[in-house]
Amino acid sequence: MEKSKVYFTDMHATLTENLLQKLKRLIKSAGIGQIDFDRKYAAIKIHFGEPGNLAFLRPNYAKVVADVVRELGGKPFLTDCNTLYVGGRKNALDHLDSAYGNGFSPFSTGCHVLIADGLKGTDEALVPVRGGEYVTEAKIGRAIMDADVFISLTHFKVHESTGIGGTLKNIGMGCGSRAGKMEMHSSGKPHVNQESCVGCGSCKKNCAHGAISIENRKASINHDLCVGCGRCIGACPTDAVLPASDESNDILNKKIAEYSYAVLHDRPQFHISLVVDVSPFCDCHAENDIPIVPNVGMFASFDPVALDLACTQAVNSQPVIPGSLLEKRGNSHHDHFKDIHPTTDWNVMIDHAVKMGLGSRDYELVKI
Rank of each mutant, 00 (worst) to 15 (best):
I221L: 08
V68L: 07
V127C: 01
E71A: 03
G33I: 02
V86E: 10
S161Q: 15
G52P: 06
L358P: 02
L365V: 13
G180P: 10
V366S: 00
L15T: 12
V305L: 08
S301L: 05
T9F: 00
K218L: 09
M356D: 07
H336P: 04
P280M: 00
R25V: 02
C200T: 05
D308R: 12
F156T: 04
G101V: 03
G103I: 01
D123P: 00
N18V: 01
P128K: 04
D94M: 13
M349R: 15
Q194R: 14
A235K: 02
S29H: 05
Y261T: 04
V354I: 15
S248G: 02
M182A: 14
T167E: 11
H12E: 15
D94P: 01
V113K: 04
A306K: 00
H223A: 04
V68A: 10
H95I: 07
Y7N: 00
I171R: 07
S98Q: 06
T154G: 05
F270I: 01
A314Q: 06
D250S: 15
R142M: 02
A179T: 10
D351M: 04
N170F: 09
A125V: 01
L264A: 06
I251D: 06
D362E: 15
S324H: 10
N193P: 03
M184A: 13
G234E: 06
N60Q: 13
V65I: 15
G163W: 07
G330M: 05
I115M: 09
L326V: 10
A306N: 04
R25D: 10
K120R: 12
S213M: 11
V315S: 09
H352A: 13
S152P: 05
N288A: 10
G52N: 07
A62H: 07
G52K: 11
A235N: 06
G165N: 08
P76S: 11
K139N: 04
D239M: 11
L325T: 14
K45N: 05
L119G: 10
H352F: 14
S108C: 06
L72T: 07
I32F: 05
L114A: 05
N253M: 09
V276Y: 10
V278E: 08
V192E: 08
G357D: 09
E50T: 03
A99Y: 09
H352V: 08
P128N: 05
P280F: 01
R70Y: 05
I27M: 06
G174Y: 08
L72D: 07
A300C: 08
